[in-house]
Write a protein that binds this DNA or RNA. Structure first.
Length: 489
RNA sequence: CGGGGAGUGGCGCAGCGGUAGCGCUCCUGCUUUGGGAGCAGGCGGUCGGGGGUUCGAAUCCCCCCUCCCCGACCA
């Protein structure tokens, strides 16, 4: 927060009939504050009673549900099946994989008492489920015929966070975690890659309209216990990076620790190769920070729980009837539309829909009605150019096309920003400098462990390693790769 | 855990020895409704907790708790 002298007029509505009232602290002024305010005012989420916990409100949850639905469908298309494993994990399981425990122990919540007594063996509240799943995979995998074993679960996990932020880092969060076992290293690697590209990248770009960088993590940034980690990184409106989804090759580390082995066609026992991959409610935070502007959220139409709101400008019977008629026509053509015929000032209601980021707003008042038209307002455009008129008859067929234009516009705007805040550099010092504003691209051969250390001292990290053309390398060891370096959430 | 702040109605704040106030929100009524409406009335707080000083504590002192910001870890 700033000094107490300059106090917030930010929450105070401005009167007058022109210019967008500033309902939020402008992003450029104080981005973290903008983020908190927009989540509160758009009724997305708030803090829970225990530090680091989150209460996801119905509107926020409806966005998460849309994400879940789409990601879940893609996961199933990739051949995995949903299952459910327990929240409570024996502490000894975690300890079986050395790097895994080491990585997670600082953030574990451990149950030491239950049923009124001290427990013989402490129980860990799952921070992730590789260990329990490994235990059961070992049981279920006997023969090469049992492979690949492709599992996914939707669950909550707990990682005790020192510096929580709504959606981005909370001590408890919701996610999807996939766990698979394969007969060969190549097959495991290919599957992790498939999930990464066909589920995560394609969901993020095609549905969430968030341009993402895909690449490998450096050993330093890898998942605890993995031999390779793939990441989707996106740039937020303030130029910082957010890791939105990751996919891991676990090699045979967990197979060895949990005895996941199988009898091959050759009659010999072989250790399986496993993968894991996840995406979480962090995506909601990423969506907010990638698309939001000074007037509030902007939800891309393909994802939006509400694509169109039809607002009655006046509380008037003829107008209300026209609004409802239009909403049902839209609904029938497969558009997610709602009406707003509430009492209360027009300005207030409109502001609420803008805060919530509804992609398209139709306004009908007596004047419009008299001329057989409606006012149409796009949320992706600046306020002064967002409005136009459209005849009532045209609306149902026109809307779908406009929604697709908005979808594309949001992606394009996010991509344009990412490109404008990205810099090619050829020294670590320049990379640190450039990361103040956005992403720095630096040849990988200039980034050794000492360089990573140096960058870390300035709160800058290698977000991912990729080919110069942005494509995903076959391996982290490929020649000529570049590191994308940035500050991150 | 180190370094800085702050805890007063739902939210944001003022008050800093004399018994709690403002703005927004909320409720009621009327007038309104084309970008967060106006007027009138009203609900709501044992001032984070505990101890102490004092005739008297939100205000001063001590202890504790919590939250926020900046650093080391993370989807």
């Amino acid at each position: 927060m700033s000094s107490p002298a300059t106090e917030p007029s930010a929450t105070k509505p401005r009167s007058g009939t022109q210019g967008p009232a500033s309902v939020l602290t402008p992003q450029r002024e104080d981005f973290p504050r903008w983020y908190q305010e927009v989540l509160a005012k758009a009724e997305m989420a708030e803090n829970g009673p225990v530090r680091g916990t989150i209460v996801i409100r119905p509107y926020g949850y409806s966005i998460w549900e849309r994400m879940q639905e789409n990601v879940d469908r893609r996961i199933k298309q990739a051949g995995a099946s949903n299952a459910y494993f327990p929240l409570f994990i024996p502490q000894s399981y975690l300890q079986r994989e050395a790097e895994h425990v080491e990585g997670f122990s600082p953030e574990l919540a451990v149950v030491t008492h239950a049923g009124g007594d001290r427990l013989e063996e402490p129980i860990v509240v799952r921070p992730t489920s590789e260990t329990v799943v490994g235990e059961y995979m070992a049981k279920w995998v006997q023969s090469y015929r049992d492979l690949p074993l492709l599992l996914n679960q939707w669950a909550n996990v707990v990682r005790w966070e020192l510096r929580p932020r709504l959606f981005l880092r909370t001590s408890e969060f919701l996610w999807q975690e996939g766990h698979t076992a394969h007969g060969t290293k190549e097959e495991a690697a290919a599957y992790a890659r498939q999930i990464h590209l066909d589920v995560y990248r394609s969901f993020l770009t095609d549905i969430a309209a968030i341009p993402v960088l895909v690449g490998h993590k450096t050993p330093r940034e890898r998942f605890a216990g993995a031999i390779n980690t793939l990441t989707c990184e996106a740039m937020m409106a303030d130029g910082k990076a957010l890791q939105i989804a990751t996919s891991h090759e676990l090699g045979q580390n967990f197979a060895r620790a949990f005895g996941i082995d199988f009898l091959g066609q050759d009659g010999q026992r072989h250790l399986a190769w496993t993968t894991s991959w996840g995406s979480s409610t962090r995506m909601v935070g990423g969506l907010v920070m990638a698309h939001g502007d000074d007037r509030g959220l902007r939800i891309p139409p393909r994802l939006a729980p509400i694509q169109v709101v039809v607002v009655a400008v006046r509380n008037d019977q003829a107008v209300s009837d026209a609004v409802e008629k239009l909403v049902s026509a839209l609904s029938q053509s497969g558009v997610r539309a709602i009406s707003d015929i509430r009492e209360g000032s027009f300005g207030r209601r409109v502001t609420e829909w803008e805060l919530k980021g509804i992609p398209l707003r139709l306004e009908i008042g007596p004047r419009d009605l008299g001329e057989g038209r409606a006012t149409i307002v796009r949320r992706d455009l600046p306020a002064d150019v967002a409005k136009s008129q459209i005849s009532l008859q045209e609306i149902p067929q026109a809307v779908k096309g406009i929604l697709e234009e908005i979808q594309a516009a949001l992606y394009d705007q996010a991509l344009a920003r990412q490109l404008s805040l990205s810099t090619q550099v050829d020294s670590v010092g320049e990379a640190i400098q450039a990361a103040e504003k956005g992403f720095a691209y630096i040849p990988k051969n200039l980034v050794d462990e000492a360089a990573e250390e140096e960058m870390a001292a300035s709160a800058v990290t290698v977000r991912c390693v990729q080919r110069p053309d942005g494509s995903l390398a076959d391996s982290e060891d490929e020649e000529g790769l570049v590191c994308v370096v940035a500050r991150s959430y």
